[in-house]
Structures are given as structure tokens and as C-alpha cells.
Simulated scan of single mutants.
Amino acid sequence: MAQSSYVTQEDVLFFRENGYWVSPKLFSESELEEMIEHQEKIYRAEYELGREPWSTWKAGDNPRSLRKTDNAHWSDPVLRRVATHPVIGEIAARLMNADKIALWHDQLLYKPGRADRRHTANVGWHQDYVYWQCCAEPSLVTAWVAFTDVDLSNGCMQVVPGSHKWGLIKVNDFFEQNLEKQQEQMELPDGQAFRPVPLVMKAGQVSFHHALTIHGSGPNTTDSPRRSMAVHLMTGDTRYRSGTPAEGHMNVKLLNGRDGDLFEGEPFPVLYPASVR
């Protein structure tokens, strides 16, 4: 297991109790400028590595919608360095008590500014694992890299502490815009309360949340876009489970395996340990 200099034992205990943790700043200002520049290249369909992402926002799509690009690391060397960053892998290994961390997939995210009543670009309350039930266990964690400063004014992520211990909750929808309605419809375990915590972060910080942690985000009411990348990671013992509602997930297609097979190989780069990259 990793012994990251960025993570104390108290941090590990916090993550295990609350299902999330926020790192110190991991990326410099010059790195962030380069990341934003290459995010824009993706939107202009300039793919330096010669391969399109799995899916992406394209010019002509709704400019007020949330832009979500899956597997930008296929297309761009700078964004690939972010998605396979060894320090992110090292931290994830420590938090998940894992000997190996590999990339599940990445999502490049852009939340446009100046939200209005019709166009909010919210992210509905959800647990990542509801979309990843093709994995036999929720042995996954997301590292959310802030390219810009984030707070409630521009739609920072909000998490529900301790919700990773509740199992799958009835209401899960990444694309739902009415967060209040979702909250009203949730069926929580007895004795539990829905109390979201906003993750206010500086550009270059990285938040980590467990695959069962409930999270979402509200509108960006500022004049500037909120930019980030969600780096979805898995432990080395993550195995394929067939016949689930997530059978259509792209990683099932990329694995092309049998029930019980490990998700491993070229489509799933290893971040930790660095010696096997």
C-alpha cells in the first residue's frame, strides 16, 4: 500500500468515515494554464494523439449545457498526464488501502457561466457506482481535478458525508437538473440525514470521493466557466460482473472479457505503483 507524503493517517481515517477528502494543491499555475489550453483543443477537435475521445461536446452542441468528454486521455498528451498522474494514483492507493490503482476512465468537464432558469448545467445527485455496476464491488474512487477555483457561486461539487456507507440509494441521475426534487424523492437509511457539504477548492487541488458517495453540483452563476477533470480510478482487484444494468458501459466493451475477469490491460493504464506503468 502507498505511503503518500500528501496523506496523513488522519486523512485516511477522515476519508473512510466521510467518503471524501480534498488534497493540497497538486498542480502549478503553469500546468493549469496548459491544461486549460488543451481542454480547448479538445473542443476544437484538435487531437494531438490522433484518436478521438469516446464521446465529447462538439461545436454546434448546446453552448449552455454541461460539456462532458469521456476519455480525453486518448486524444491529448497533456490531459493524459493529468489522468494518469502518479501522485493522484499514490493518494488513491493510500485512501483505498490498495496495492494497485489503475484508470477506470476520465471525464473532462466544462460548466458554462451565467446560468439562468432554463439552462443550469447542474449535475444531479448520484453515486458513481450506479453507472459502474459492471464492477463486482464498488472498489473505485474519483479524483476530481479543479482547473479553476470552485465554490458555490460557480457550481462546485457537493458531497453527502458518510453516504458511501448507505449502499445504492433509489434516486440516482447525473443529468437531473432539479436537485431539490431529487432530494425529496430519496429513500435514506433509517437515522440518516441528507446534509451536503460544498467542496470549496483552489485551482490545482484535487478532491477524492468513494464510488458510493452521493454528490452533485448546482449552477454556475458567474461569468467564467468552471473547468475540471474527473479521473475515475479503480483498485487492482476490480473485476467484471456480467448481466447488470451497466452492461452497456464503454469499459465492458473495451475489456471484451468474461464474468469475473479483472479490468486490466492497455485500456486501463496503471497509475500506482509507478514501476508498472
Rank of each mutant, 00 (worst) to 15 (best):
T238C: 10
L212R: 05
V206I: 08
H232C: 14
R258W: 07
S228L: 04
A230K: 00
E247V: 15
T222C: 02
T222H: 03
M250N: 14
G191M: 02
M157Q: 04
T213R: 00
D190R: 11
R239D: 12
S217W: 03
P189L: 01
Q192I: 11
Q185M: 14
Q185E: 15
G191C: 07
L199Q: 06
Q185K: 08
S207Q: 05
H249F: 14
Q182S: 02
V159Q: 02
E184T: 11
G260W: 01
P196Q: 00
A193H: 12
T238W: 02
E180T: 14
A203F: 05
P196T: 00
R195M: 13
S224D: 14
E176I: 08
D190E: 13
V200I: 12
M201I: 00
V206T: 08
L188D: 12
M157H: 05
G243T: 07
W166D: 06
M234W: 10
I214Q: 02
T221M: 14
A211K: 02
M234S: 12
S207R: 02
W166K: 00
A203T: 10
V197P: 07
A211W: 04
D237V: 11
D173F: 12
L168G: 10
M229G: 11
A246N: 10
M201S: 04
D223F: 07
L212E: 11
G167E: 11
V231D: 09
M157D: 05
F208T: 13
K170Q: 12
G260A: 01
L255N: 06
V206F: 10
M250V: 15
C156H: 04
L254A: 13
G216C: 05
P189V: 01
S217V: 00
H210D: 15
P225D: 12
G257N: 04
M157F: 07
E247R: 10
P161G: 07
W166R: 00
V206C: 08
L199I: 08
D259M: 05
V160L: 06
H215W: 04
A193F: 12
L199F: 07
L168P: 09
G204L: 04
R227T: 09
L199P: 03
A230Q: 06
E187P: 10
H215C: 03
S242M: 14
G191H: 02
D190S: 14
A193E: 13
T244H: 08
K181T: 14
E187T: 12
L254Y: 11
I214C: 05
R226F: 09
D261G: 03
L168Q: 08
Y240E: 04
D259P: 12
P196V: 00
V231L: 06
G243M: 03
Q182W: 03
N172R: 03
P161I: 02
D223E: 15
F194W: 07
L179C: 08
N178P: 08
F174Y: 15
